[in-house]
Nucleic acid binder design. Sequence first.
DNA 1: TAAAAATTCGGAAACGATTGCACAGGAAAA
DNA 2: TTTTCCTGTGCAATCGTTTCCGAATTTTTA
Lengths: 337, 337
Amino acid sequence: MSEITIKYLAQKLNLATSTVSRALNDSHEISETTKRKVTELAKALNFQPNAYAKGLRQQKTKTIGIIVPDRVNPFFNLVIEGAESICRANGYSLIAYNSYEDVEQEKKIVYGLLGGKVDAVIMSLADEEKEAQHLEWLRERNIPVIFFDRVAQHLEGFKFTTNDQESSYLGTKHLLEKGCKKVIYLGLSHTSSVGAARREGFIQAHQELGKALDPACLMEMGHNDKENQEILEKMFFKLTRPDGVLAAAEKLGLAAYRALIKTRIKVPDQVRVVSFTNMQMADLLNPPLSTIAQPAFDMGSACALELIKGLKDKKVDLSEEKRIIIPSVFTPRESSR
Amino acid sequence: MSEITIKYLAQKLNLATSTVSRALNDSHEISETTKRKVTELAKALNFQPNAYAKGLRQQKTKTIGIIVPDRVNPFFNLVIEGAESICRANGYSLIAYNSYEDVEQEKKIVYGLLGGKVDAVIMSLADEEKEAQHLEWLRERNIPVIFFDRVAQHLEGFKFTTNDQESSYLGTKHLLEKGCKKVIYLGLSHTSSVGAARREGFIQAHQELGKALDPACLMEMGHNDKENQEILEKMFFKLTRPDGVLAAAEKLGLAAYRALIKTRIKVPDQVRVVSFTNMQMADLLNPPLSTIAQPAFDMGSACALELIKGLKDKKVDLSEEKRIIIPSVFTPRESSR
DNA sequence: TAAAAATTCGGAAACGATTGCACAGGAAAA
DNA sequence: TTTTCCTGTGCAATCGTTTCCGAATTTTTA
């Protein structure tokens, strides 16, 4: 590894390692002249303090971990990006972990983090319902955890979410007002707080507009894209097909689009579509897709900001319950005209 | 941080820390009975060895760093994903850094890495032309570096690329054979090896098919999406507009699509389009986009695999020049019919 | 001018894990 | 019985940094 250490600098300059260390950290008890000598040599030799020695000694690492269920998903990808920008601006590093929607994998990651790799953790859970024992371990080890989107239901803490129910309500209302008689709701998991809220908004819209709602219209899909698409194709093929779709996840919106193309059903003439999604090119789809976009980047930066504030300021208790809501943006386009 | 240490386990069991350490590492010089006792207690208390103490002592961290110019870009995102999957399977962690297409930022990241944060680095450069002094620092500190896509031109090493020239050649030939009279090439930087190769393939196709090529058709675009789109809109508005577009980057393909929609020019009737891209939904665009997809995931996993092999096997010299080519996939769709 | 205080620096002990070496105790060989 | 060897364990050094505690020198104060 690095051969240039503080010890090396010290003997080059005939100083003690403690002096060099203090000089590099701009301590007040070191004279300006020695400070200058030290920093100059350090710069010349491109000295970089060993992160592990530092972390070991100070018991903090200046890094934050973020665990998401699906890194490739543009939503989570943008959250990571937002968090990273704030971390970077504050001298923190960010390590991103992917739980692949799997609680066991998530546990492994969390247990690995127990080894003091990070000072704090930002999480979106693989499953909110499951016991949160692995998360409590983090708390016990004094590693703060805050949540976004899929937040813990059995653990208190800072929780960043978006106005899922309201957004879903608005999207559904939009479809109904455009004249849809039978709108189906495509959800991934109604046990998640996000799924439950979106589902609730969907139902709420029907109630407020006095529209009947067939329970069969609340569809729970799986994580397998191919299967989802086939199920939808079959449904669209029937004469009893719906004339509106509210997709509560990007992958479901895309599956619906593909199924509609396959069955040659016209959007929006025969079926109108609105989808939750963070894709950048909804306007380029065929036809342009009406979207409900979660404030991904902002959510990531808000999480990181609040977390770093909490790490700096001992008065902030990151383990107390606090909910922060950042609104989503509904953009109607051709697909629901 | 973590209060549960080896020392703590040792005194609980009336053993020396060395014994505990050896037991946990499954050393042959520890009896099965003590091993069992130790591992059981460790599991019960959920002991995790301190990563920083371990890293400091062993002078290796079991983590790999990856630096990309634009993490949000699906190509790089997928590369990271591919690399991560291999790392995870081999007990390595992966830390992803974003240089934001900025050499200075890249240098900062690299210098930060000098502090022994990682055992090795996978990189795609912000600028291949610039001096590679910061990369040589890594080599001097015995931190192997390998490259993908945008590889170093002034430094030897393992370099993973795709068949850029051939792919570009095929895409261009396809456009010309479909009857295009005037195809424009949209590139980001002809000084990069990737840009140069794609440009070369474009020219090669014209030569082999005996088509004249106006130098003005080789267009160098910038990184600003809005500006690019405006330039293209102006061009498409003229009567001398091209009837074919080969976009050498996803963002350029999208800019072209947006410009074509804005100017109400029909694809593929008036202008045919082929774009390098890794987006997942090219088939859903309006019209479905003909793509040249780089093998992003495979490239990431190949990098990680080779790197880890090199770290394990001292006989492999990761600093010697070696080029590995993973072919791209051309998928013609409606946009170039 | 002597004492007190401030400034500037060095020595050494941490942080938590690994590892070379020493050393018991028992088994095997002589 | 004595010697040799092996097995299982403990001691202590080490990785590179920070930081507590003094100590030496200079400056200020009485």
